[in-house]
């Protein structure tokens, strides 16, 4: 699985103004009395806070989003906590389970390993973006038909990986699917049904 690698824009204006501000804060800090009381009241933190929110523009499921995020926020938490797209799941937060798989510019990534700010200008597709209104995506339909899940928690990640798996041309045989597609854990053990779902979608040859 490739990790999305889009450098944050170092020239982001508010980043620059934050740096300026921090310098100003440092200067104040050299005044002993002020520094002590600022620290006590946590002012430096409070001021820094406002500027630590970095502006981010991206498209999620075709909709332009403009948000402010802390640099440490992952794409996964941005989606779930700020954009309320909770279809993308958190199974480990360590890049080990695949539950958080989304597409960034068409490539599957672990959104828990992707800092949100690195997706500036990107097109992100999540599970919520697959169906066309009421009409399910062929892969969603196939998961339903083959019962490719039980609890459903790994399912969004499985489906996003499955779609990518076919697009990447790695779904020619059950063996290939099992090998390539190892990074999505299903603790309920729906693997055989998932493989059947992928094989069916692949065999139908629809455009995904």
């Amino acid at each position: 699985m490739s990790t999305h690698n889009n450098e944050p824009n170092p020239n982001s204006s508010s980043r620059r103004s934050f740096l300026k501000q921090s310098t100003a804060l440092t200067a104040i800090a050299f005044t002993p009395g002020a520094a002590v009381s600022a620290a006590q009241k946590g002012w430096d933190e409070q001021v820094a806070l406002a500027f630590e929110q970095l502006p981010l523009r991206l498209k999620v499921n075709g909709i332009a989003q403009q948000v402010n995020v802390e640099a440490r926020v992952t794409l996964l938490d941005l989606l779930r906590d700020q954009l309320h797209l909770t279809g993308t799941k958190k199974g480990c937060d360590y890049g080990q389970c695949g539950a958080c798989t989304v597409h960034v510019n068409g490539e599957r990534v672990n959104s828990c390993l992707t800092l949100a700010i690195t997706t500036e200008g990107c097109q992100v597709t999540t599970i919520e973006g697959l169906a066309k209104g009421e009409e399910l995506h062929p892969m969603q339909q196939a998961f339903l038909k083959h019962d490719g899940f039980q609890c459903g928690y790994c399912t969004p990640g499985q489906i996003m990986s499955a779609v990518a798996c076919i697009k990447e041309g790695h779904a020619d045989s059950p063996e290939e699917i099992r090998r390539v597609y190892e990074c999505n854990i299903c603790r309920c053990g729906a693997y055989p049904n998932i493989v059947n779902a992928i094989l069916e979608v692949k065999a139908k040859g629809e455009k995904l």
Binding site: R80, H84, L85, T86, G87, T88, K89, K90, T126, I127, E128, L130, A131, L136, Q140, F143, L144, K145, D147, F149, G152, Y153, T155, P156, I159
Partner: peptide
């Protein structure tokens, strides 16, 4: 038959505890 809650699960619509706000 298909799972009755299947559609919710394949579309990301199923809400697990942490997804309530």
């Amino acid at each position: 038959i298909d799972r009755v809650d299947g559609r919710m699960k394949v579309t990301g619509g199923a809400k697990y505890f942490a997804e309530f706000e």
